[in-house]
Design a protein around this nucleic acid. Structure first.
Length: 448
DNA sequence: TTTTGAGTTGTTCGA
DNA sequence: GTCGAACAACTCAAA
């Protein structure tokens, strides 16, 4: 029996893991994770810490067999393969732009010495690039994508019982967590499944209705685990009962796959507008915009729902999806700042930061991406707050300075005039004014 | 090939 | 308070 390497990247789990199963089928397995300096460039302490904690959990599950290497994958993986005299390196396919380029380099470096990088499985139920129209081209609208996506077959890989080969002599070790004040989700497969089994029985039933309410435990909050493959989305699909709540949850899983598919076909849309005509949309990047952006980052816009969302993200590495849309709309349409600034800030602070979901989510809000969103769709932060946090519980959790206000004024403390809390900032902009400004800018782009 | 219908998540205004 | 219409024009998908 041969020994092969299992290179973990975005599949930090032992259950239902196609790449691990492929490696284990050939003999003993050396599990390897490479701490790529490129990751630290974009990820903040929260995501780094969550990842390291998951590595520790995995290492415990493996009896200490995990080899952690520090450095560039295209150097570290071939070096280890050579040292261990291993022919095959197994991994799950990565479809994001950086991952594809990296894997090409690693595969080439391995091939130079007669070794192979073998891709099996991926972080998705259906691999990006597979769901296509009848004419073989990609889809750019969600609903038809969702219909076709559901017609594709998938099945669980199932668990395997790998024999770990001890190569710990080669390991650089798992570093300590970077300083991180945020309260993160518990790491590890067991904790992930505990969350699912405690949330799903009550959460799925009325998911469609309460998922938009940030003050309620209405979402699975498993995005970070999906990001790192602590849970595979097909494992969740396999758990779904019948019912409209579960149907809606399924469509949310599909959104993640849809955006990965869009990015696979258009890697340039990672940081550029998917719709080229939107390059003509005027955005502000001057000093005033920078100051406004700083206020947004530091949760002092004076709009409670916006500031609450930013505080939640800074404190926990996670923000409720409804609030992500609200703060994104505010940055793009009230402050007229490029969506890329917000997307990069999110990528730094989110534990679940996923380049495809994050950046195309931002593009959706900015009106530059998928979905020909009407240009007049401008979120009213006050109205959204009233509608989705009617009792103000979310606001009170994150902004104690205004917790004493009644359910009407808490959404808009400035309406109290002189009686507004002195220790909470006044709005940095007038939404009504900025809404008109945004409409004018967008209209300019749509009308030739 | 042409035509037709539709497109995650909204807001405002006036009846 | 509720409800429907208006807010444009375009791209996409499928018939």
């Amino acid at each position: 029996m041969a020994t092969s390497i299992w290179w973990l990247r975005r599949d930090l789990r032992l259950s239902d893991n196609g790449a691990l199963a492929a490696a284990a089928a050939k003999g003993s397995v050396v599990p390897v994770f490479v701490l790529d300096p490129k990751f630290a460039e974009r990820a903040g302490a929260a995501r780094m810490a969550f990842m390291l904690r998951n590595l520790r959990s995995l290492n415990d599950q493996m009896g200490g067999a995990l080899v952690v290497l520090h450095g560039k994958p295209e150097e570290q993986i071939p070096r280890l393969a050579k040292a261990l005299d291993v022919t095959d390196v197994h991994c799950a396919r990565d479809f994001a732009p950086y991952g594809r380029a990296r894997d090409q380099q690693v595969a080439a470096a391995l091939a130079a010495n007669g070794r192979r990088l073998v891709g099996s499985d991926s972080p998705y139920v259906i691999d990006p690039g597979v769901v296509l129209k009848d004419d073989g081209t990609a889809l750019r609208v969600f609903t038809p994508f969702y219909k076709r996506w559901q017609q594709h077959e998938w099945k669980l890989v199932g668990d395997c019982a790998p024999t770990w080969k001890d190569a710990s002599d080669f390991s650089d070790g798992i570093p300590h967590d970077p300083p991180c004040a945020a309260t993160l989700p518990d790491a590890g497969e067991t904790a992930a499944w505990t969350r699912w089994t405690t949330w799903a029985p009550h959460g799925l039933g009325d998911y469609k209705d309460v998922r938009n309410n940030p003050g309620i435990d209405g979402t699975s909050m498993l995005s970070a685990q999906l990001r790192f493959g602590v849970i595979h989305p097909r494992q969740l699909l396999a758990e779904l009962p019948a019912g409209s709540g579960a149907d809606h949850f399924r469509s949310e899983i599909c959104w993640r796959e849809f955006y990965a598919d869009v990015m696979f076909h258009r890697p340039d849309s990672t940081w550029n507008n998917l719709q080229e005509k939107m390059d003509r949309l005027p955005v502000d990047t001057d000093d005033r915009a920078k100051h406004r952006f700083a206020a947004w980052c530091e949760a002092r816009t004076g709009y409670p729902i916006v500031d609450a969302g930013m505080r939640q993200m800074l404190a926990t590495g996670w923000m409720h999806n409804r609030v992500r849309m609200i703060v994104a709309s505010f940055l793009v349409k009230d402050l007229h700042v490029p969506w890329q600034w917000g997307a990069a800030f999110f990528m730094r602070h989110l534990v679940d930061g996923d380049i495809a979901s994050n950046n195309h989510g931002w593009q959706w809000t900015a009106g530059t991406g998928t979905d020909a969103a009407p240009y007049f769709r401008v979120f009213n932060p006050f109205g959204q707050s009233e509608k989705f946090d009617p009792d103000g519980s979310y606001l009170r959790t994150w902004i104690p300075e205004i917790a004493e206000l009644d359910n009407t004024h808490i959404h808009a403390p400035w309406t109290l005039g002189l009686h507004a809390p002195a220790h909470y900032p006044a709005p940095i902009v007038d939404h009504a004014v900025e809404r008109e400004e945004a409409l004018a800018r967008y209209k300019k782009v749509s009308g030739k």
